[in-house]
Amino acid sequence: MSRSDATAGEGRIRRARFGSNVGFVFLAIPLALFVGFILLMFGWLLQNGGGVLSWEFLTSPPLKGMTEGGIWPCIVGTLLVTFVSLVFSVPVGICSGIYLSEYAPDNIVTRLIRSSVRSLAGIPSIVYGLFGVALFVNAFRFGMSVLASGMTLGLMNLPWIIATCEEAVSAIPSSFREGALALGSTKWEAIRRNVLPHAFPGILTGVLLALARTMGETAPILFTGVTYYTRQLPTSLLHKFMALPYHLFTLATQHDQVAKVRPIAFGTALVLLALVLAFDAIAFAIRLRITRTNTWQV
C-alpha cells in the first residue's frame, strides 16, 4: 500500500466518523424532543390538576353540579365497561389469532381475512361508535347501556387482540412444533404444550395494550351508553354509566362554568392517564421479562 493510499484511507475513516456523529445527533434530537414534550405535558397536568387529587376526589361522586366532589362513578364506569369489552374480545380474539397462525391454510381467503384484520385495527373509533348504535343499541335492543358500550369497545379491540395474538404465536420457533409432532403428539397437543405456554406473555401484553387503549376511548361509548351525569353507580349491564374520558370532555367543553371546574377536569385527565400508564407499564414489564428469559431467541 502506498503512502497516498494510506492518507486516503484515513480521510475516508475521518469522514465516516463525522457522518456517524451527524447521524447520531439527527436521530437523538427528535427523541429528546419527544421525551421532553411528554414530560412537559405531565408537568402541566400535574401543576393544574394535582391540587384536586385526594382520596376524597377518587372515592366520592360529583357534587353541586360537578363543581365539587370527585370522580368515583367515572372510575367505576370506565373500569366496568373496559372489563365487559374484554370479556367479549379476549376469548374471540385469542382463538382467532391462534387459528390464523396455526390452522388457517395459506390461501387468498385467509390472506384477505388477515389484511382485513389489519385494516379494521385502523378504522376511526367513531365509526365503531355509530356501528354500535345500529347493532347493539337498536337492533339488539340493549339501549344506551354498559353492555352496548362494552360490546362496541370489544368490537374495536378485537382486531388488535387478533393481530397481536397471531404475532405472539407465530413468533414461537417451528422446531418446537415439529419436535413435538415427531414424538407423536397431535397438532393440538403440540400447540397446547409447546407453543401456547411460550406465547402467553406476548398474548398478555397485547391484551393489556388493548385494555389501556380501550380505557381512553370516548367516541365508541358516546352514543352507546355513557351519560353526562347519573346519581347511581350502574348495578345492571343495561344501565347507563359515567366514564373518565367523557367526563373530561363534559367538564372541559359542556359545563356552564368551564373555568371553575377546570382543576377537576385536569384531575380527571391525570387519573385517566395514570390508569392507562399503569396497564402499559405492566405490559412493558412482562415484555421485558420475556426478552430476558427467552433463551431460544439467540
Binding site: P173, S175, F176, G179, A180, N294
Partner: peptide
C-alpha cells in the same frame, strides 16, 4: 410417529 422417532439436523430441545 411414536414407532418412528426422529432427531433433527439442528438440536431442538424444548424450553
Amino acid at each position: 410417529r411414536k414407532r418412528v422417532g426422529m432427531v433433527f439436523q439442528k438440536p431442538n430441545p424444548f424450553p
